[in-house]
Design a protein around this nucleic acid. Sequence first.
DNA 1: CGAAACGTTGAATGGTTTCAACAAGAGTGG
DNA 2: CCACTCTTGTTGAAACCATTCAACGTTTCG
Lengths: 263, 263
Amino acid sequence: MKSGMADINKDDWQAPHRQSAIARKLLAYAELPDDDLAALAALQGNRRTVEAGEEIPHRDNDRKYSAFLLTSGWVCSYKLLRDGSRQIIDFRIPGDFLRLRSFMLQTSGSSLEAITRVELIEFATGNLLRTLGERPRLAAALLWSASRDEAAIVEHLIDIGRRSALVRTAHFLLELRLRLQLVGLATPSGYDCPLSQYLLGDALGLSAIHLNRILRKLRESGLVTFRKGTVTFNNLSALMELAEFDRDYLDQGRPRLPKPQNG
Amino acid sequence: MKSGMADINKDDWQAPHRQSAIARKLLAYAELPDDDLAALAALQGNRRTVEAGEEIPHRDNDRKYSAFLLTSGWVCSYKLLRDGSRQIIDFRIPGDFLRLRSFMLQTSGSSLEAITRVELIEFATGNLLRTLGERPRLAAALLWSASRDEAAIVEHLIDIGRRSALVRTAHFLLELRLRLQLVGLATPSGYDCPLSQYLLGDALGLSAIHLNRILRKLRESGLVTFRKGTVTFNNLSALMELAEFDRDYLDQGRPRLPKPQNG
DNA sequence: CGAAACGTTGAATGGTTTCAACAAGAGTGG
DNA sequence: CCACTCTTGTTGAAACCATTCAACGTTTCG
């Protein structure tokens, strides 16, 4: 009766790797010497756990706004509207930053909610700029990561703006797959996914009811199956064709940053 | 027969100020000493003009990818889909950067098209990080600007994801107003706007036909009028109420960066 | 003047939402 | 263990919003 996909406990969404998710992700872009990784680690502060369903606080115990690094679990950033509906802006997965840039505005904007139990690390933004000024390779890797985040939001915008519900859903599931793969939480054939149909619907700008029908259609077409917390790609190439997933910004090929050129 | 709003020539969308739009924008956030402004100017390279309707090239004359600073005119960044439809991701106005972050991915992603005749300045990204490492106030101001850009895209996403066509259109017009005001291209009562209904529709995820009806409704309700390249707010507070424009991320109050605290 | 781009309106079609109802599983306390 | 509730998933039918198709008016420009 257990899913054969991966032997990850249903309640434990931690990355099963010795390397941290963020390091794993950055190393997919650039080879970073040990002192760069050490500098990255030096920016990390206290650990913290947030239970599923709870908000992730904006301010650190009556101190200033704070940014986090997500090391385990899923989070969604969303905004509530007056009529009670909700738009989910992005799902955040291990290795992603929370509020790394929006904290600049010192304003709420969007809220963050833990979808599963979540592990966070406080991230020191005070010395961030100085560190990056001294470590161009680390800076490039972090900028690359930030650009990826923004590109994902842009694709999300295109999804809900101009793609049909079917294509949109397919595209979004493929998008998640690529992001998860980068931190070792997905295989080419599928991944574990703790999202309810309500959450997915709120992300895709669809009612949960309609999303349900769309998921059925995708399943009955033999393209993707999303059931019981698991996404399985039954026909990946056909799905990518349907979703016009010809994009390369999530660069599976490894576009490594060239070795440093001068001292 | 001429619009009474502003005496800007219809074909000349240049900011009528001695200060550059980018400086004007950054100064709205932080008081920058002259050497910071000089450092900003030092990052600027060759000027270039692009005619209305033309693409803004990805690569600089067979050299590498390049970023630009938009000094005059309107640009849209968009993506074309297989079925021929188009999603406009963002309109860029004077003082905005083009491809400042997406150039990190060294990939196309979205395209840029000049809506009006446009003036650009090449922006040196090579020494950008080092400069910012040495100039924390300038760095903070640029990060603030980048965060604002991203916040605008997020609001755009919420618009098309969960807001009705009417609210969405109202909200988007208010959003543009705030951005334009920051560089002196809008008054509280309105602004000149070179967008066709096709462009606006492609931004809002609506057909131009439906957008036309929405604009009529907004006009007949006495809220906003968008005609002949001019947006006029006839009842600003009622419009903001309709659009639930209670947001403060575009901080009209001046949240100035405090003076430097140590040498 | 003619052409092209943009704006405007009506009517039919269709995708999505809403309302309503029910099924299945997980967790709780008796 | 069993009811009980709560959340999530599933399906049908009616209502609605937005798109498409088609036509025509308007402005600009060569």
